[in-house]
Design a protein around this nucleic acid. Structure first.
Lengths: 343, 343
DNA sequence: CTGAAAGCGCTAACAC
DNA sequence: GTGTTAGCGCTTTCAG
């Protein structure tokens, strides 16, 4: 039932000027006298006029540079995960500050990314960031063809020429192993995320590599599906065997906290007295005093601003070459690792 | 540098049909023969053509029903908060399933809501949901005038004729008080969210009301700013006085967990032996075994589907009257409340 | 069922 | 500076 909304023509008529004058009044730097602009702005405010971003985007489509909609697409899995929630929150603030809107798409599996991307592209987004999901070579090509910069966050794809920023997962795994080995642990277990997940696999590979250098191999391994419950269940399995690990490294903090809670509450085990525990990410809950989880921190703030900065410059100048940034994880010492008892 | 993207004209030419045929091929139910549609769809796929949602939205603007952009705006504060993260995650999935896209706007203070709404309206969103923030009467009027349905989630505004779904905060507060009183507690404290926050105030009011019926008044109160750290600090203040509470009710789980961790780790207090604790929301971490936080659960799943359903029907038929839904919180018994020691 | 043509609201040449 | 005009890509009458 809504009546037709107010257009620049309505304002023009009311202000006694041409429609293009109204357009100019709303375009910073357009050739128009101060006085006339002010008049138009006033009339516009009275009428409650706001330029139609959709129409604006339509008409700028003409330029050879691709259509600027002012929207960037964001594709994300597991938004309810604290790590991603934080990431999205930060990203949202920064991209807004740069004058872009965020079109958010939640996907369940990695396969949905293509669909998501297709849908987003129909909205003529100026760029897209993909959180922890993979981009098919074919879609990468499509994006390039359309001049849409892509930012892969927390994931990289071999041989794909797109921007990415991510933590150095392999090194992070090494860091964890190094610390555990130096602390004298010998029966070291690993709990990974979803099976086949590249991030988890890279953390594991680095971890195992460093273990091998110390003459050790993985004592046991489980999958925890990147969830609290998954971590807890993995712990139960790990410690139900006759031979128990003396240290556990988890591919994410959420899983590590699952291990911790299960250990204390369901298995009557003390951390770090009965075994040492290391996580990955450094989510807020890891630092809660009662948890004190030792972990590998991802510098989320710096990573996100790098990602935004990079994406923005690519959107402003689509001819820029993709940049690939890797950040080093930092070992955060808290209370869940101690020197192994000899024997 | 991107070349002009593929339009319906390109497809028309390649398929040897008119442009309008292409349009019809992509509009379900449009008058076109099966054979021709199939041909066009094939050609389109070969060319990598996808209809331009922006342009589509432009041209449908003509109808007297308001412009359908296929986007709904979402305005949110504190996205990093687990409760909101869960809410957004659920909302995102449901609204996508209904065929809408989500334009997400993060605001810092309540004052920014107007700005956010204005920006979103420039994108001609079909509807908007506002999470835990207030809507000015003036903006409500503007939305109505433009035929944009508004859904207030987790907040209501007296005398404003817009949709809302929320938890019954007052009753939730009563529930908490009732349980504590029945358990024999007498020195009962409250930790609120941000000062002046209506949600927290309503929970407190219900809480205090039930206390009064038992002949009690609030033993003490603090503000915890809806954060973990705020809750922890509030606890420190609460227990540094000579007279200590025997029970604490927090306006949110995050704050309650702050209290719990501070109590155990920094104050050497046991829960529930030294005092009882109740939270509000029932976020995932509340149920973690080591926490076992007794709390008032918000049925997020049901609330969100109600919100989406309501918003969607309002978007499909803008003449619908606003609906106001209130859900009852549910007391979840876990391990942080016990009968008070006599004396 | 089909093609031609008229817009949706705006920006950006283009003349004055 | 300013008004006029031609599109941006699409949907939807309107004739046939």
């Amino acid at each position: 039932m809504a009546k037709r909304s107010i257009t620049s023509y309505d304002v023009a008529k009311a202000a006694g000027v041409s429609q293009s004058a109204v357009s100019r009044a709303f375009s910073p730097g357009a050739p128009i006298s101060k006085k006339k602009r002010q008049l138009i702005l006033n009339v516009a405010k009275d009428l409650g006029y706001q330029p139609n971003a959709i129409a604006r985007s339509m008409s700028t489509a003409r330029k050879d540079t691709h259509q600027r909609s002012g929207m960037v697409g964001v594709i994300v899995t597991r938004l309810q995960d604290p790590f991603f929630a934080q990431t999205i929150a930060d990203f949202s603030r920064l991209i807004q500050a740069q004058g872009w809107q965020m079109l958010l798409f939640t996907v369940d599996g990695e396969g949905d990314v293509n669909t998501a991307l297709n849908t987003l592209m129909q909205y003529k987004i100026d760029g897209v960031v993909i959180l922890s999901a993979i981009l098919s070579e074919q879609m990468a090509k499509v994006c390039r063809a359309q001049g849409i910069p892509v930012m892969l966050y927390n994931r990289s794809v071999e041989g794909l020429d797109v921007n990415h920023v991510q933590i150095h997962n392999h090194d992070g795994g090494r860091l964890a192993a190094d610390f555990l080995v130096e602390a004298g642990h010998r029966r070291i277990a690993f709990i990974g995320g979803e099976d086949g997940d590249a991030t988890s696999a890279a953390r594991e590979a680095g971890f195992v590599e460093r273990l091998a250098e110390a003459g050790l191999s993985l004592f046991s391994r489980e999958s925890g599906n990147y969830t609290f419950e998954g971590g807890a269940e993995a712990a139960l399995r790990l410690f139900s065997r006759s031979e128990r690990p003396d240290a556990v490294f988890c591919a994410s903090d959420v899983m590590a906290l699952g291990v911790m809670h299960a250990a204390r509450t369901e298995m009557g085990l003390e951390i770090p007295d009965d075994f040492s525990l290391i996580g990955f990410d450094d989510i807020p809950a890891a630092g809660w005093p009662g948890h004190g989880l030792t972990t590998i921190r991802q510098p989320v703030g710096r990573m996100i601003s790098e990602a935004v900065e990079c994406l923005v410059s690519n959107m402003r100048d689509t001819s820029l070459a993709p940049s690939k940034q890797r950040f080093e994880g930092q070992l955060i010492l808290r209370k869940t690792v101690k020197r192994a008892q000899p024997g």
